[in-house]
């Protein structure tokens, strides 16, 4: 287990370094830089030179990259040019916002998708299961880009929910947490709807297979109530395939949140990355890309551990490699 974890950590570290370095170099190579973007074409040559020197843009790419890398090892990721704040302060703030959104969406999707999947999977026919199945198919064809446009449209027409941002300009009497929750509903639902549909389909599929297994029949034959068999016994066995695709789910959450963040103006990592790219704010670009890689690497690792938790076979084979978890 330890060795396995160490290998995963090493790969994650490599991923983060590679992704942030690549985006740093790419953003640096791009035509135009922060100074030309922000000062415009009217600026004098001296002003441009002075600003370039201030941000270290007058050095060669190799020298600048070396300086950035050397600082990054000491956990100093440079200073964002457009915000004039250290990248190290800026990123955790925005990453936390993305994490709130992703976590809320994951909880919502699980709470809705899994029970529905158990219902549809444990009964082959009937009006309710087939309705759920069709709804899932429709929702699967609506990626977060489309769900968020649809939800924003509905919210703007009815005025039920705020359509943009994370907080109201003035904190209402109800309190900051409630205000945040109010703003969270729309973007979280936009990511959660297709995700819930996916979970429903997966869970239903796993359930259909498990319901036919001898141990379920045996329990039923012994007179254990059907609901107990389904919701206790079969559910446990059917969770494994769902946990198996959790890493895909993490990817969905993460990339889905980009479109949603942009459309609903959620101040998360995706929005920050977009701004940084537009302004050619290279330190911030590298920081955002690295943070994104950490997100994904961490997510895949958690999902692998979750798989080991629900499937004893997975952890047995792994515990041979080292000490038990």
């Amino acid at each position: 287990m330890t060795r396995y974890l160490a290998r995963r950590l090493a790969f994650a570290l490599f991923l983060v370094v590679a992704v942030s370095s690549a985006s740093f170099v790419l953003a640096r190579l791009a035509p135009g830089d922060f100074v030309t973007e922000s000062l415009g074409s009217q600026a004098s040559r001296q002003a441009i030179e002075r600003e370039r020197a201030r941000f270290g843009l007058d050095k060669s790419i190799a020298a600048q990259y070396r300086a950035w890398l050397a600082a990054a090892v000491r956990l100093d990721f440079g200073r964002s040019m457009q915000y004039d704040r250290p990248v190290r302060d800026l990123i955790p703030e925005r990453a936390a916002n993305t994490a709130i959104l992703a976590l809320a969406a994951l909880l919502l999707a699980t709470a809705v998708g899994l029970p529905l999947g158990i219902v549809t999977g444990s009964r082959p026919g009937g009006v309710i299961p087939s309705t759920i199945r069709s709804a899932s198919l429709v929702l699967l064809s609506m990626p977060p880009l489309l769900t968020s446009l649809l939800l924003v449209f509905i919210a703007a027409r009815t005025g039920w929910l705020p359509i943009a941002g994370m907080r109201s300009a003035s904190v209402p009497a109800a309190g900051a947490a409630l205000d945040l929750l109010h703003h969270l509903v729309l973007p979280a639902a936009a990511i959660a709807l297709p995700l819930a549909a996916m979970m429903e389909r997966l869970q239903a599929q796993a359930m259909t297979e498990v319901v036919d297994e001898p141990f379920v029949r045996a329990a039923l034959a012994r007179g254990v109530p059907r609901s107990r068999v389904i919701w206790r016994g079969a559910l446990k066995a059917a969770l494994r395939p769902v946990a198996g695709v959790l890493s895909l789910v993490i990817g969905t959450l993460f990339s889905g949140s980009f479109a949603v963040e942009v459309i609903t103006a959620w101040p998360g990592l995706g929005n920050l990355m977009l701004q940084a790219l537009r302004a050619r704010d290279i330190y911030l670009v590298a920081g955002c890309a690295g943070a994104g890689a950490i997100f994904l690497a961490f997510g895949t690792m958690v999902s692998d551990l979750a798989l080991a938790a629900v499937d004893p076979r997975a952890s047995e084979t792994r515990s041979d490699e080292g000490s038990a978890p």
Binding site: L15, A22, A27, P31, S255, F258, L277, A289, G292, T300
Partner: peptide
């Protein structure tokens, strides 16, 4: 490696570095 990359970010970064 390519599969674990955040795909949308890769596309964004690659597109943004070009004129």
């Amino acid at each position: 490696f390519v599969m674990v990359l955040p795909a949308m970010y890769v596309a964004l970064a690659l597109r943004a570095v070009l004129p």
